[in-house]
Design a protein around this nucleic acid. Structure first.
Lengths: 193, 193
DNA sequence: ACAGGCATGTAAGTTGTTACATGATTAT
DNA sequence: ATAATCATGTAACAACTTACATGCCTGT
């Protein structure tokens, strides 16, 4: 249900068209709540029908400018303060870690090394974004800075974790690849169930 | 596409029924890649049709035991080593932070305080899980421990971030709520675009 | 007898992705 | 002219959620 609230949130900053909002979804919201064009136009239609937003003007090329209605603002505030954020987060990265015993130890190490490198890369990208917006003031970017800091801390954490995990693997190097012998694997599962 | 690989991964530990796998999805995989019963049975059907798994025995109450085929193991290894994990992660928590200027500063603070508390709670849950499995040996849980450590570091990071963010808000306490005056908000957006 | 756990399946609805399709306006 | 950008819409499909539906087996 959050694309809805992302759209309401962006419109709380002032009227905008679907096309305008899309730039933001591909820009500053890209790593928080990305959306496709197809999805957004559909959602704006539903929001208009529900009277949470309304078309305030129609411009060239069929451009429709939407604005938040009082009901929309109320819904946004309700969501912000009274609806608990989701806690569970799917991660296909961690899912892979779960099954890393299926591949050769060298491949597992390679996997973790790439996670470490990738975290550094992404961290640096965030740093350059931070540098770019450091000059811009304004209370609207105020809270945006908090999400950026979250990203910086997240990528740092992940790099440290990946490096730590590599150490762990190095500490016990003689664990041979599992599932080489299916029979043995089965009994191990039995004891865990 | 990852429910597929989660199922293949679990079956790499030995044959199991849909019901068996479901316990794991609700248990140790619950915070990494949860799945519902409905979804899982459907997926197992598809995997069987694609010859990545096969029914190896049928037991009481219509129980069907599935096992990984060689093709299934190959697909699992391919996914583990050659397919890049997804980097973007939707977070309705961070999405809320983005729009926190819409509510009163006290509500924003309350929001962050709850994130801090929740991180502590979840961290402690992970600690008790860690304590519970600390006795159990076996290379199968080896990599599972890495995901647990990730969770511990993640919850620590989030608590520290939330506390830091609260400090930031305290540092500049006189920022009044935005969107009180729509007109003003609009001009601010214009300068950002 | 009956409660609780075992075991599977289907249907309806929402959300999200990719691709197709169309056309207007602006700047070079 | 024509390329880039502006601007919206639709169709098909995949992934996920909630609810409905059924029935068997085991222990008390």
């Amino acid at each position: 249900m959050s694309l809805k609230h992302a759209a309401l949130g962006l419109l709380s900053r002032g009227p905008a068209s679907g096309y305008d909002l899309l730039q933001t979804f591909h820009g500053s919201l890209a790593s928080v709540w990305p959306a496709t064009q197809s999805q957004l136009y559909g959602e704006l239609g539903k929001l208009a029908e529900a009277k949470l937003v309304e078309v305030v003007s129609e411009g060239a090329r069929g451009r429709k400018e939407y604005a938040l209605t009082p009901a929309g603002l109320a819904e946004l505030r309700h969501w912000l303060t009274e609806v608990e954020p989701t806690t569970v987060r799917r991660s296909d990265m961690l899912l892979r870690v779960f099954f890393l015993n299926v591949v050769e130890p060298e491949d597992a190490q390679e996997f973790l090394r790439r996670r470490s490198e990738q975290s550094v890369t992404y961290h640096n990208e965030l740093l350059s974004i931070q540098e770019r917006i450091s000059g811009e003031a304004g209370p609207l970017t105020e809270y945006g800075r908090l999400t950026l800091e979250w990203g910086l801390r997240y990528t740092t954490m992940q790099r440290e974790w990946a490096d730590w995990a590599l150490d762990q693997l190095a500490a016990k190097p003689q664990t041979e690849t599992e599932t080489e012998t299916q029979a043995e694997t089965e009994t191990q599962v039995a004891t865990r169930a």
